[in-house]
Amino acid sequence: MASTIRVRATSSGETTEVQVLIQHPMDSGFVKDAKGETIPPHFIRELTFEYDGKNVFIADWGAAVSKDPYVKFSFKGGKKGDDLKISWIDNKGETDTTTAKIQ
């Protein structure tokens, strides 16, 4: 299966800007389907970004993060061609991981 994680990590020399888009329903548990049955909560809880053996950014998410979540941040350092590892785990224990090259 293709990765659920799409990443763009761009180094400007001093800092690296990271944008990530993840395919995930992010069901809140408050929405009912067409039959009137509540769709159970299903959302990413933790999203981590690792560079050079260290976490550079950690997101703790609740159910109020939009479907197919997007997040952008920047960190100091990061060289072109280096790896950035991104992982998420959701409330059902499902996970995905990808490694992106900094551009």
């Binding site: 800092t15 992010m26 809140s28 260290k54 976490n55 550079v56 950014f57 950690i58 997101a59 703790d60 998410w61 609740g62 159910a63 109020a64 993060v65 939009s66 979540p69 997007y70 997040v71 952008k72 941040f73 920047s74 960190f75 100091k76 350092g77």
Partner: peptide, 21 residues
């Protein structure tokens, strides 16, 4: 509470995301 971001030293305090309201 919608989201919490942990910012280690060296990461800039700028975050953009999309939330449900």
């Amino acid at each position: 509470l919608a989201a919490v971001y942990r910012i280690p030293p060296g990461t800039l305090p700028n975050v953009a995301n999309r939330l449900k309201m």
